[in-house]
Design a protein around this nucleic acid. Structure first.
Ligand SMILES: [Mn+2]
Ligand SMILES: [Mn+2]
Ligand SMILES: [Zn+2]
Ligand SMILES: [Zn+2]
Lengths: 135, 135
DNA sequence: ACGGACCTTAGACTGTGTCTAAAGCGAGAC
DNA sequence: GTCTCGCTTTAGACACAGTCTAAGGTCCGT
């Protein structure tokens, strides 16, 4: 994986109009592959292990750039932090009330009816947000 | 309304185990009747008009107390602020992407199927969060 | 080499929410 | 009527997420 992974990440960034740099690649290699829904400061902590001199501002700038360029989505699902999600397909979220962990729920696992018929609202996107404990 | 409204609020607080004070009543009279989904600092701004000496700490303490006592629900629907909602019945939320305004969507307006059959998740509550523009 | 565009950096700054320590208040006890 | 004790309120300090600024670094094209 290693060498070809980095090349693939560079290509992916370029295809989305993002010039690859060492910092952007290090951030991409973690955040575009995780299923942890990390916050910006969690990304910062992870990336510092691979690239100790990276700055907090660069991590925030890069995550926001990735969102703008369509490489990542940002979600607000709990108090106090935005989380980043490389899963670009529509899906729902389950939040473990005991740990705060966020789990993806496939779009096909649930069905929401009547969205198009809602009076007065022109809905661009929606998701079901579920809370509970793991079974 | 006015005089009997205050009495009703005091009774409501007492029934939920909250000792009524002038500050708590002033906060209750706004936040338990609004449909604006205000943030704590929006509540603070409103309540200061009626009770100019009220402190920010009291507003935060009181809103959290109301949530603990089941008079209010707190929601995190956008970055950077918790909003408070006196509508205790299950319902969904539509967020106007242009203004950030939050609108209630009645539970009966949508139907979510298959929640109970989700593998691995013991769901305690859920809601649909919709974003778009007003029609 | 040089210039210029773009990127990264440290740290200051802002806004939301919590905590602390001291003062205020009010319903009984006397 | 005053005391007292628990509860409430207050101002401001504090903690943390996120943004901004100003300065310096990097990468190319010439
Ligand atoms: Mn952002
Ligand atoms: Mn809270
Ligand atoms: Zn997700
Ligand atoms: Zn609501």
């Amino acid at each position: 994986m290693t060498a070809s992974t980095v090349l693939d990440e560079a290509e992916l960034l370029e295809r989305h109009g993002v010039l690859p740099s060492a910092q952007r690649l290090a951030i991409a290699q973690y955040v575009l592959r995780t299923d942890e829904h990390p916050s910006a400061d969690q990304v910062f902590a992870k990336v510092k292990r691979a690239l100790p001199m990276v700055s907090r501002a660069t991590v925030y700038n890069t995550l926001n750039l990735f969102v703008d360029k369509g490489l990542l989505r940002a979600h607000v699902l709990a108090e106090g932090k935005v989380v980043f999600d490389p899963n670009l397909a529509p899906h729902h979220h389950f939040i473990d009330e005991e740990t705060g962990a966020i789990h993806d729920v496939p779009w096909s696992a649930l069905a929401v009816s009547n969205v198009d018929a809602l009076e007065g609202f022109d809905v661009h996107e929606y998701q079901v947000v579920l809370r509970g404990k793991l079974k």
